[in-house]
């Protein structure tokens, strides 16, 4: 049954980009994010998108990031249509739509290439309180488990004559009750068991717990950061000084 949940979890990929410190990846992602946000010409957005795709190839994650872009293309189309409808010019509407795609893809760089483990370290480094980090960790950790629960519950209720695909909208919503109630009850029970297990392993015993791993910037990280910052500064400079035809 574990294939069911497979699509919802981070996948390890061996790539030089994945090996970078999560903070480096976060920086690159944020830079792209800022560049797309500030872009005022289609050509700029196009350059951002191309650079993101370049990084994606480097990170051997073109497929996943490409899928993210495709999935958000629908919403981009919607943005385009709405703008056009409200009298925003064709070119500007296109710009807004593309800008949205650029923002989505630049954030996805970070999330696609960063393991939940690294994400946790990054959150701690950013000074997020431990309880919140841990709540986040368990939430992500248990997504596949809860998905499996949901599938098993659906199987059980279908086996009691529940037709999930039949009926009108109201009926379909009502059909969700036999699925959602056990799912919620199970999750509550599960969180109780989690709390017991955490207590039993000394969670909260000291105010300042240590960690098996510590984030460390390698020389490579530092140079990548430097290059990306230079690139970022150059782009900003062009934004401010050079007038690009729209």
């Amino acid at each position: 049954m574990h294939w069911v949940a497979g699509g919802f979890v981070f996948r390890r990929v061996e790539s030089p980009f994945h090996k970078l410190d999560p903070r480096t990846k976060l920086l690159i992602s944020l830079e792209f994010f800022a560049i797309s946000l500030l872009a005022f010409a289609i050509i700029q957005v196009a350059i951002v998108l191309a650079s993101v795709l370049f990084v994606a190839v480097y990170a051997k994650s073109l497929k996943r990031i490409g899928r993210t872009i495709l999935m958000s293309a629908g919403f981009a189309g919607f943005i385009f249509a709405i703008n056009l409808l409200f009298g925003v010019g064709l070119v500007s509407s296109l710009l807004y739509a593309l800008r949205f795609l650029a923002i989505v893809s630049s954030t996805s760089i970070f999330f696609v290439t960063t393991s939940p483990d690294e994400l946790e370290h990054t959150m701690k480094w950013l000074g997020v309180p431990r309880d919140i980090v841990f709540a986040f960790v368990t939430a992500v950790r248990f997504i596949p488990v809860i998905m499996l629960d949901a599938f098993q519950i659906m199987d059980a209720q279908k086996s009691r004559g529940l037709e999930l695909e039949k009926g009108n909208f109201v009926k379909r919503i009502r059909n969700m009750v036999p699925i959602l109630v056990p799912l919620v009850v199970n999750s509550v029970v599960r969180s109780g068991e989690l709390a017991e297990a955490m207590e039993s392993r000394a969670y909260g015993a000291t105010p300042k717990p240590t960690s098996l791993y510590k984030l460390r910037l390698s020389r490579k990280d530092k140079s990548v950061m430097l290059v990306s910052l230079l690139f970022f500064a150059a782009v900003l400079y062009i934004y401010l000084r050079v007038k690009v035809p729209v």
Partner: peptide
């Protein structure tokens, strides 16, 4: 609780 076996075993000692 954690995303890797190693990290999970470290959970108690870390605490």
């Amino acid at each position: 609780f954690m995303f890797s076996v190693e990290r999970d075993i470290a959970f108690g000692p870390e605490n």
